[in-house]
């Protein structure tokens, strides 16, 4: 685990300092500091509305924070602090930094008019200007990694939710990101389909991918997460190894949060 402030080169893949985000009058993030260690899995948990998804979306620059900085591999993402104040970087700089980040969405967001392979090769062809044969070979290799090589010609609508999410992961991996962000990747899946997605994510973690995962899968966070941050009301309330965070005695706020989930599980069994 890396403590905030310590940022050894290579040790920290992404660091967040003093991040503040408002939607209108509502402050969603009230000063977040977080270091994401390279090659490890960081899990963000917390009740809905705690700001965990917003924090993740800021790391992808899908939301623009009102204050604070995000460094990706030492490079500022989106905004840079200058003697004249905080200033938005030109789009080309933003794209260059963002190229090292992959994102997996709750709703998969596969492009419906392209096949699974088309989704994976699109950016390789259009952004990286790769030839068709090379892009398709690479795309098929990525689909093989998530166990879907035989579904390459299927449209998203012809795939199950779990398969769609695995294609979405392959689409991100094809661009060889250094950090993968997961925004509740299993939340819109039927319970029996979450396993196949979590398995792919476990495999990635074992390969040493730097990952930040927003999830309600407490079991996944506890078993795979190297670092767990519990957010509540726009702040990081607890932060440490799963053992530190989940071990007893627990913070009362976390206890209540976990109870809700256990209750929900019990309700499902009843």
């Amino acid at each position: 685990m890396t403590a905030p402030g310590e940022s050894a080169a290579g040790g920290t893949a992404l660091s967040v300092r003093g991040l503040v985000k408002r939607f209108g009058a509502h402050e969603v993030l009230s000063g977040i500091d977080l270091d994401v260690p390279a090659g490890r899995v960081t899990c963000l948990i917390g009740p809905s509305g705690s700001g965990k998804s917003t924090l993740l979306r800021c790391m992808a620059f899908l939301e623009e924070a009102g204050a604070g900085t995000i460094l990706v591999g030492g490079e500022p993402l989106g905004f840079a602090e200058t003697p004249q104040g905080r200033r938005r970087l030109p789009p080309a700089r933003i794209r260059a930094v963002r190229a090292s980040i992959g994102m997996v969405f709750q709703q998969f967001n596969l492009w419906p008019h392209m096949t699974a392979l088309g989704n994976v090769t699109e950016a390789l062809r259009v952004v990286r200007r790769m030839g068709r044969a090379e892009a398709e070979a690479k795309g098929l290799a990525q689909l093989r990694k998530v166990g879907l090589e035989d579904r390459a010609g299927h449209y998203p609508a012809q795939l199950s939710g779990g398969q769609q999410q695995r294609v979405a992961i392959a689409r991100s991996l094809a661009l060889e990101p250094r950090i993968m962000l997961f925004d509740e990747p299993t939340s819109s899946l039927d319970p029996e389909l979450t396993g196949e997605v979590l398995d792919v994510m476990r495999g990635l973690a074992a390969d040493g991918m730097t990952m930040v995962v927003v999830s309600h899968e407490i079991g996944f966070a506890a078993s795979v997460g190297e670092q767990v941050a519990f957010l509540d009301g726009g702040r990081i309330l607890l932060h440490g190894s799963p053992r530190d965070v989940f071990g007893k005695p627990r913070h009362p706020r976390l206890e209540r949060f976990l109870d809700t989930y256990l209750d929900r599980g019990a309700a499902m069994l009843a």
């Binding site: 899908l62 963002r98 980040i101 492009w111 950016a123 952004v127 689409r171 991100s172 661009l175």
Partner: peptide, 9 residues
């Protein structure tokens, strides 16, 4: 957003 992340202009 997915296209943004894939780097499409």
């Amino acid at each position: 957003e997915a296209a943004d992340m894939a780097g499409l202009g």
